[in-house]
Simulated assay, not measured.
Amino acid sequence: MSHKLVLLACLAVTVCSAAKVPIAIYYESLCPDSAKFITEQLYPAMQTELRESVELTFVPFGKSQFVTQGAETMFTCHHGPNECYGNRVHNCAIEHIQANSYQIEYTRESLTLNFINCLMKAGKNFPDNVYPGQRCATENHINNWENIKMCANSTDGSNLLKKAGETTQRLKEPLTSVPTILFNEQFDKDVNQRVQVNFLGTLCKYVSAPQPRICSEHNGASGLVGAGSALLGSLLGLWFLRYLY
């Protein structure tokens, strides 16, 4: 391969990498709003071709607090001790889930998202008080649940949770609501509110051209709705004028 071709290949890789939209999700494992966003907005959108345009970062900590006493770190979580355990499981899963060479249809990213989505779907309703970690691991082709569980029950899990807390505390705009979603490492209050009811449409505004077809379809559908509303408004206006005169 010539030097020119090598340079072009490197440039192509750089452009492709730069095209991905960095999205960071600051959330809590037992937060109903976090569960609603992940299961109803994020996960469905990531089952489309848009997944190729996104680089997701999960930060499971939220409004939790921690204090360090000697070698030990003590946590207080927004929804109680069960959430502290859940946050540790999420952090350990993010750290330890790996794709297998014999399961080429799954990537590390897709396995992690599938596992988190399953845990968030379970919410606070655990049958027989059994945390759904093993069930979600089995259902989503994750073969190292025992390692994740061991991490969550050890200082490794505490260290990862503390690291997530430190990441949360470094936000330029202090976290005031959960979930908080950052695009391109920037917090925007209006975007954060909009993305929780229309993640796909909001994401399409950040994706570089050429946009995936689903963005055109989504924008087209929105345009049709807007046009329909305008037409209805005009008809009602004409009817009202006719009624007056």
Rank of each mutant, 00 (worst) to 15 (best):
P179Y: 10
P60K: 02
Y102W: 14
P32A: 11
Q103M: 11
S29M: 01
K63S: 09
Y245H: 12
I148M: 06
N117R: 15
A122T: 13
L42D: 01
K4F: 06
A221Q: 11
G220Q: 09
E52F: 09
F126Y: 15
L56C: 09
F66T: 09
N184C: 08
V197F: 09
C204I: 04
M120D: 12
P210Y: 03
T68D: 09
M46R: 01
I97A: 06
I148P: 00
K20L: 13
Q196I: 07
I94G: 02
L56I: 11
G228D: 07
S17E: 09
R194Q: 13
Q211M: 08
T73A: 03
H78C: 01
N147S: 14
I23C: 07
N144G: 02
G237R: 09
F240E: 05
A221Y: 06
L182D: 02
G223H: 04
I23G: 03
A9N: 11
S222P: 00
V225W: 09
F240K: 12
P81Y: 06
L111H: 12
V195L: 07
P81Q: 08
T155G: 14
Q169S: 11
L175G: 02
C215K: 11
R108L: 04
V67M: 07
S34I: 02
L175H: 06
Y26I: 10
L203F: 11
E52H: 08
S154Q: 05
R213C: 01
N125V: 06
K205S: 15
V89R: 11
G80Y: 12
M150E: 15
C151F: 03
A18K: 10
L231H: 01
G157I: 07
P174F: 07
S2W: 00
G86K: 01
S216C: 05
K63G: 06
T176Y: 04
L232T: 06
I181N: 10
T138W: 11
A93N: 05
F240D: 10
L235K: 02
L30E: 03
I116N: 06
L203Q: 05
P127H: 05
T14H: 14
S110K: 08
R194G: 09
I25M: 05
T48H: 05
L56G: 08
Q196R: 14
G220I: 01
F58W: 08
S158A: 13
A71C: 02
F61W: 02
S234K: 13
Q196T: 12
D190G: 02
L42F: 12
A227W: 11
G86E: 01
E40I: 01
Y131G: 10
A99Q: 12
D128H: 06
E40S: 12
L119Y: 03
Q103P: 00
H141L: 04
H90N: 10
L50P: 00
G237L: 15
V130E: 15
F187L: 04
A164W: 02
A93D: 03
L56D: 08
G62T: 03
S154F: 01
H96N: 15
Q69V: 15
Q196E: 07
E146P: 00
K162T: 05
N198A: 15
I214D: 00
Y26Q: 08
C77L: 12
E72P: 00
T138M: 14
L238H: 12
G233V: 13
L182A: 04
Y85S: 10
A152G: 13
